[in-house]
Write a protein that binds this DNA or RNA. Structure first.
Lengths: 217, 217, 217, 217
DNA sequence: AATGAATGAGGTTTCATTCAT
DNA sequence: TATGAATGAAACCTCATTCAT
């Protein structure tokens, strides 16, 4: 069978590779399984991607691009609470539709090689970290965030919570963990509503207790 | 040499295996390297542990036992803030001294097998989840935690933050991520102080904005 | 483009294939590289030559035809010394300009298959062997070659020396070997002159010591 | 089957590997075939020899050591003719008993990599080249070799003839070539005698025509 | 009981060969 | 007819696992 590798086929390879890497980790991923899943022969993969490592990194970059696009575009709003709700919605949808991307992210955070870890982190975390830091700095200046909050630390805590939310949607272990903590599926309608309300409240209180307070006469 | 495999030897094997798994991941860990590090022959390892997978899971269970012991014992205090500071100190010390245990924890969260993930999560997260939920429920009842907080969700967010703290101490990727967010090493003295103050403030505000507010007339 | 595979194209393929085989050896030669060098697609090569092995053998036969043509035509002279000098000049020029052909020759001498080796040898060595044998027989009869020389053996030794000369010009290993023996490059002007003088003297003495002697009263 | 790899087994591996490399060349040699021939598993070969390349080079060094030992030790005699006859006998015996070693030698001379060829040549040809050059220089000084002979060139021609003799004994192609030139098998009793007489005569005449002449009043 | 040499299945990667376009 | 993408067999090499000593 000799169908010319169309654009879609290439995309499919990357998608299946991302799945495989996300599911098994770099070391346990099998090129032959990726080829099989994408419906191509092994040789094709090596025609388009030098080797396993290269393929992994391309999947990674792709995933991260997608991920950071989602995070940065969803965060556009003047109102903090609205922005936050937008972000949560994005995370919910994205994680459900692209669990592999999140698994990829999780997989690289296991990377034991110091140097490579550093490079990846720089590439990935750079954008959102400054986004969040700026946002918090602005908030402090505007008086909407408590003035003793360190922008750096607060952004860090904030992203930590979002990160774990991603994991809770996309990784089996974390999904189960959610069930243990909250007694229901993270996918359930009940969760969707409660999680959003509670996280918004939690973060608003954490960053601006006064406003929170003010809301309750 | 007539040392039958003493208790210590077994412990040493497990320790070295945990190191290896933590450092390299399950797939890249080498049985021969574990044997070498523990000063035994490969055969011995296979005498006591059916196969690599079994060894991995025993290391895992061991790590998790250790981890949850630390968390549960360190959290004993009447005063919420003191308890929190105790926990943070535990995390800091434990993660520095037993990074492999944390790395093991992180590794299993990659577990793609739904069923196994469920079992592991149940075993691991059960204790701390109820611990935190109870503590928050008590706080709400006692009026020290805002009454609109869901104990389940709050415990979940709380543990999420602690989890990420563990990772930030123990995993290269997350250490670098911390550097990107906070501009300094997570090990540095400056970090130690700031991180604690900021996280305590963040959590206090998140859970009890009134108290926070009250502190600033 | 409506160029059917013209004669020149076919010649070009063979030439580039010979280069590739000569440079890399049969096993390491790549069909795709040959196609690239000849400016045709791989398919074309397979249209004209059943498989890699066939192509190799055709290159071989071609090379050998070329080689023996050169040797037999260059050896035409009444005077033995002049003929020898002609041959040496031919070898020098041919080996420099067609190293691939010599490398091909060298490559087949590695042929482990007894039967195939026999066929190739018959085809290749037949012409020059009888040429040299006849020439030596004539020489003996004419009294210009010592009468105790066996025409067969002498022709054999003679061709052995010429063969090694070819190798010394065309194969990296033998070029270096020459350097080790003679302290200079086989390509150098100094070599050209010295090599010719010495080899002529060596062969004249070997075949007709009397003549040689005569030169020294 | 778990027999401990004895010294003999190691030697056997090297022997079979030398056979395989000699027969097929480096590129076409198969590790699995070597393992099979030596009656060991593939893994064993990789336990003792880093990789195919390493194995090849060890075989090579081994072969060359053996070869140069034979050549240098056999050449010990005060009388030039006797020495030469000794060398010829050595070549005859060695080539018959160790054809693989000669094939190894032939295989590396195909080495297309300039740098590696240079290193190998230096290692291999160094000893015999100086041996022969010295011997010829001494001969010139002693008046037993014609004084217009260049020691370097003469040594080169001399070794060329010996080299081809080796090939003629050990390589199928060259064996057939011998048959074409001389009409009989190089192994035959008739060849043994004739070859020696003729080569001795050829070389004596080539190097010292006067002595040759003297024998014919 | 402990050892570690040997095994060999299985993964990555290459490239001769095919055949739809 | 020419193309070159796709195929997939086959080679290298690794390392979990076994078992003779």
């Amino acid at each position: 069978m000799l169908k010319k590798l169309s654009e879609e086929k290439q995309k499919l390879i990357l998608e299946k590779a991302t799945d495989e890497f996300g599911r098994c980790g770099k070391a346990d991923a099998k090129i032959s399984r990726i080829a099989g899943a994408a419906g191509v022969s092994v040789g094709v993969i090596y025609k388009y991607y030098t080797d396993k490592d290269t393929l992994f990194h391309i999947c990674l970059e792709n995933s991260l691009k997608t991920l950071s696009e989602v995070l940065t575009t969803s965060g556009a709003s003047n109102d903090a609470e609205e922005m936050l709700r937008n972000i949560l919605a994005s995370i919910r949808e994205f994680s459900k539709e692209n669990p592999s991307v999140i698994r990829m992210y999780h997989a690289i955070t296991s990377e034991p090689d110091e140097k490579e870890a550093a490079e990846l982190a720089a590439e990935i975390e750079g954008i959102s970290s400054s986004l969040y830091k700026d946002w918090i700095s602005d908030g402090i200046e505007a008086g909407t965030i408590r003035e003793d909050a360190s922008p750096e630390m607060s952004a860090f805590f904030f992203d930590n919570l979002l990160m774990m939310l991603h994991f809770s949607y996309a990784l089996p272990y974390y999904r189960q963990r959610y069930r243990i903590y909250c007694g229901k599926d993270v996918d359930s309608a009940a969760s969707e509503k409660l999680l959003e309300e509670q996280l918004v409240a939690f973060l608003k209180a954490a960053l601006n207790p006064a406003a929170q307070q003010g809301g309750k006469p």
